[in-house]
């Protein structure tokens, strides 16, 4: 490992093509540890494609992904996760037939087991203890301890979002990619979500890259924003700078309401 201590995730010159369509165009961004970085843009801007390329589910046409100072472009998704990259999904990927506690525990277990055939079958007592502790803590932090024994398939969207967050928390990842974690949440849940995210960043020093449509949440919690449009980076700055940017406004033309809401939020929050 080289790189600075706060090097979280660096995306260098990333290009993703689907056939002839360029989804992400020579994108460069860096999401350091201990900070909350936002990635926003209109629908189809290439946010999820960027996430998929970062987490290794999608092979980029060109460019590099550097995780914690290490070039992981050629590593698979599981290897990146074991190196400390966790993520959630816009369309949640949960183990719907299992309980909340099992869901949360499985992330830690998966990291421990990796590709070791023996460890995939049974856990050592010490590993098991670590899993239990991490699960309890994650449930506590996300405020879903009361749901621990419920089957995920029976939960509401908001609760599921929290389960997914608890899962990446328990996984002990250094860097998190959160894909629209607040969609489907009501206002109170969304605020609570923001608080949890801030706690993660300040207390545990992890880095978060956040894709989000809820501008209010983005503007409140993020330290820095990257704005994508048609796969290309059109703006990079603090939330205040972003709000003021005419370029960003133009890109969101037609989604003016979104920016309006953000403006209101600014006044509301202070």
């Amino acid at each position: 490992m080289t790189g600075a201590t706060d090097a979280g995730l660096d995306v260098v010159d990333l290009t993703v093509r689907y056939g002839g369509q360029v989804a992400v165009d020579r994108l460069g961004l860096s999401a350091p540890l201990g900070r909350l970085t936002g990635l926003i843009g209109p629908n189809g801007a290439g946010k999820t494609s960027t996430f998929n390329a970062c987490s290794g589910l999608l092979r980029p046409s060109s460019g590099r992904i550097v995780l914690l100072g290490e070039d992981v472009t050629r590593k698979g998704a599981a290897a990146r996760a074991r190196r400390g990259l966790g993520r959630t999904f816009q369309r949640m990927e949960l183990f719907t037939s299992m309980t909340v506690a099992e869901n949360v525990a499985l992330a830690r277990e998966a990291r421990q087991a990796g590709s070791n055939p023996l460890r995939q079958q049974v856990a050592t007592p010490r590993q098991w203890a670590a899993v239990q502790a991490a699960t309890a803590e994650a449930l506590e932090v996300c405020g879903i301890t009361g749901l621990a024994d419920r089957v995920v398939g029976a939960l509401s969207t908001g609760q599921r979002r929290l389960v997914e967050l608890a899962r990446v928390y328990a996984g002990d990842f250094r860097m998190l990619l959160l894909d629209e974690p607040s969609s489907g949440l009501d206002k109170a849940e969304s605020e609570r979500f923001g608080t949890i995210l801030r706690t993660l960043v300040s207390d545990r020093g992890i880095g978060i890259l956040l894709v989000e449509h809820d501008m209010e949440l983005v503007m409140t919690v993020c330290d820095e924003l990257y704005v994508l449009d048609f796969g290309a980076l059109i703006f990079h700055g603090t939330p205040a700078e972003t709000k003021a940017s005419p370029v960003v406004r133009a890109a969101y033309l037609g989604s003016e309401a979104v920016m309006e809401a953000a403006g209101l939020a600014e006044r509301g929050v202070g």
Binding site: L57, R87, F89, L94, S97, E109, A110, A113, G114, R167
Partner: peptide
Amino acid sequence: FLRGMADSPTALITTGLG
């Protein structure tokens, strides 16, 4: 893991399982 695989292989991969 097997039950998890039935529900969501993607979730298992992205949490580090080979």
